[in-house]
Every structure is written in structure tokens, then in C-alpha cells.
Design a protein around this nucleic acid. Sequence first.
DNA 1: TTGACATATGTCAGAATTGACATATCGCTT
DNA 2: AAGCGATATGTCAATTCTGACATATGTCAA
Lengths: 104, 104
Amino acid sequence: MKTDKQKRLEAAGFKIGTADDFLKLTPAESELVTLRLCLAHDVRRRRIALHFTQADLARRLGSSQSRIAKLEAAETDVSLDLLFRAMFATGAKRREVGRLIAAV
Amino acid sequence: MKTDKQKRLEAAGFKIGTADDFLKLTPAESELVTLRLCLAHDVRRRRIALHFTQADLARRLGSSQSRIAKLEAAETDVSLDLLFRAMFATGAKRREVGRLIAAV
DNA sequence: TTGACATATGTCAGAATTGACATATCGCTT
DNA sequence: AAGCGATATGTCAATTCTGACATATGTCAA
């Protein structure tokens, strides 16, 4: 879900850093980018806390190690669906996920 | 993102109601279904509160009226990506979305 | 070094999701 | 009843996302 703006900038040689909206993203776009980043980060955090390898989590999800690597790197071809399924596959409940998302 | 179990049951003539896991869903599946339902419901609630028609919201999202109808009905071919983009397009912030998701 | 294990990166054909469109149905006013 | 605006439902070609695979890179111990 790469925006046109992101595509243009990346074509020009720029990369998205951890900061969010120093590019002129609409508020909605910015919220979405941040959401993806914090989910990706938390999947990794939770996976490691469980002493799972990426392959372990992939097996649990019916996915593959390479896709988990991309997911944790928040690559643009990873869907929110997969991110949430990964969260839930690490045992997260809605309450925890909600708290994560709500955190400023 | 229809699970095999859901597919089997629906093939046998059953329909998913508003209740969640009276079918034998794994906890992860159940969390995902509930998440989708409450997002879909809240998009409609927020849209109506803004006095938007489905077509209005669709325009704002670069989508179409029919897709918004499907989204609000939580049809299975609607992605979480679209659900979240719709939430943000109604002006929701992560904090509100998080609270919604965390709510029991 | 070598080997073993974990993670990263690139590719691709198949699957899922998309917006667009047509059309049906509903609710409401005249 | 007829007209109108809003919503629902079905279809489909194009786009996006997917798991699988190959392979590269990194890390650590023997």
C-alpha cells in the first residue's frame, strides 16, 4: 500500500525512515503508516519473547520465513491482514493490540 | 479471508451471525473475526455521524459506493487495509481506533 | 575455517482484493 | 403510484498480496 508520494520519493532515491510524516502525508496516510510500523515492530518483539524463529511463526501462520522477514521489516507489500494475523498468532488479544495501537 | 471451517460450514448452508466463536474457531481466528466486525460497524457509525453517504466516503477513499456497502456488511472479500483506511478517512485517530479494538 | 542456524532479499505464478459498473431494493415524499 | 436518493448485490478485469523457493548475509560455536 505504497502511496504515490512515497513512490515518487523512493524513485528519487529516498527511503522512508522511522519518522512518519516529514513527507507531506495526509493525516489518514500518516496514521496508517504508523499503524503498520508499530504492528510490525511488536510482532517481532512478541515473537522473540516467545523464543520463536521467523520460521516457527511462519509455520503457525501457514506462511513462510521470508514473508515474516518482510512483515517485520514493514515492507510495503505486506498487508494489515497479515500483520494482525501475525499478532494474534503470537497469542495477542484484542485488548493488547488495541492498547498498542492507542498508545501515542 | 474466509477460513476453511467457515467455508465448510457455509457450503453446508450455514451463515455466520453476529456471534463470534460458537463455531470452533481458534482464538486467533476469533479475534480476527471480531476485529473485522467491530471495525465494519464503527465505520458505518462514524460515517452516519458525519452525515456522509456511502458514496461520499467512497469518494474520499478513492473507492466506490458498492465497496463501502460491502465493507460495512463485513463481507469476506474486504481487507483489513480497507477497513482501517475507511476508519482513518472518517477522521478517526489511532487512539480512538485502539480504544475501539481494546474494548471487550 | 567450516558448519549450522537465523534472518534478509529477490523472484514469480497463483490467489485474494480492488474499483467500476449494472442493476436491484429500500425508504421516503409527493 | 411514481420518482428519487441511498444502499445492497452481483460480476469482472486489473491490481495487489501471497507462499514458495533460491540464495545471500549474518552470527556464533567447534
